[in-house]
């Protein structure tokens, strides 16, 4: 059996890689990819805790389902915003989106 700590370390690494992508990448689309990685890391944690501490009750899985829903919503709205911003400013560089005026 795989120890629980492996999953947690794995998820922590994934989370930090995603975090680095969010913090350092220029392209807004790539920033969104970083966010997806972070959300996935969270899901791994949730499922691992469910499996090791909570199964067979379904409570832990519910959170995963809701995180997936939130991720889908986030991707839809985020990409819509990026496309809208691109249409107006001709850029997806996060550093150049620093004006309050649209």
């Amino acid at each position: 059996m795989i120890p629980l700590s492996w999953y947690l370390i794995f998820a922590a690494c994934l989370f930090c890689i995603g975090l680095f992508g969010v913090l350092a990448r220029k392209n807004a689309v790539t920033i969104l990819m970083g966010i997806e990685l972070m959300l996935n890391a969270v899901n791994i944690n949730l499922l691992a805790f469910w499996r090791y501490l909570w199964a067979p009750k379904a409570d832990g899985q519910v959170f995963v389902a809701i995180v997936i829903v939130a991720a889908a919503a986030e991707a839809a709205v985020g990409l819509a915003l990026i496309i809208s911003a691109y249409r107006r400013r001709q850029t997806v560089n996060a550093n150049e989106m620093d004006m309050l005026k649209g």
């Binding site: 975090l19 913090l23 350092a24 550093n95 989106m97 620093d98 004006m99 309050l100």
Partner: peptide, 13 residues
């Protein structure tokens, strides 16, 4: 006050 979200986030983290 650069308006760059990523810098804010770096600072926050």
């Amino acid at each position: 006050q650069s308006g760059r979200v990523q810098m804010y986030m770096v600072l926050a983290v």
